[in-house]
């Protein structure tokens, strides 16, 4: 626990040290006010807007796997004790998920351009 406190202290020292060094050495302490870079043009609108994420189907596929991974961490620890059953069950489940991936791939979910 004390070592962890040391780690936090160390990280804090790095951040504050860099901040202090920058403040002492920097050419100008006030940040430059700038328009966002747009290839040498004035921005016409605010850039932050609802971004068309065309890989949303991939997100769903990812979530299915990601949930599975949460079970896999504890499984990794006990696999030696629980024996062949747990291995068959885990990879059977992964096989089902992989069938889903192949289906998504065939439907073109992995391509969005």
């Amino acid at each position: 626990m004390i070592a962890l406190a040391g780690l936090v202290l160390g990280i804090g020292l790095v951040l504050t040290g860099l901040q202090a060094a920058a403040t002492a050495l920097t050419v100008a302490r006030t940040p430059a006010m700038s328009l966002p870079f747009e290839s040498g043009n004035l921005p016409a609108q605010h850039a932050v807007s609802r971004f068309h994420v065309r890989w949303y189907a991939l997100c769903v596929l990812f979530l299915a796997f990601d949930m599975e991974m949460i079970f896999m961490y504890p499984w990794a620890v006990v696999v030696a004790q629980t024996g062949a059953t747990s291995v068959v069950e885990m990879f059977g489940f992964l096989g089902v998920l992989l069938v889903g991936v192949v289906y998504a791939w065939r439907e073109g979910a992995l391509r969005w351009v």
């Binding site: 060094a21 920058a22 920097t26 100008a28 940040p31 430059a32 006010m33 700038s34 328009l35 932050v48």
Partner: peptide, 12 residues
């Protein structure tokens, strides 16, 4: 470290 920081219009 020496360089100036930079901020844009209406940033978060």
């Amino acid at each position: 470290l020496l360089g100036q920081r930079r901020t844009t219009v209406a940033p978060d």
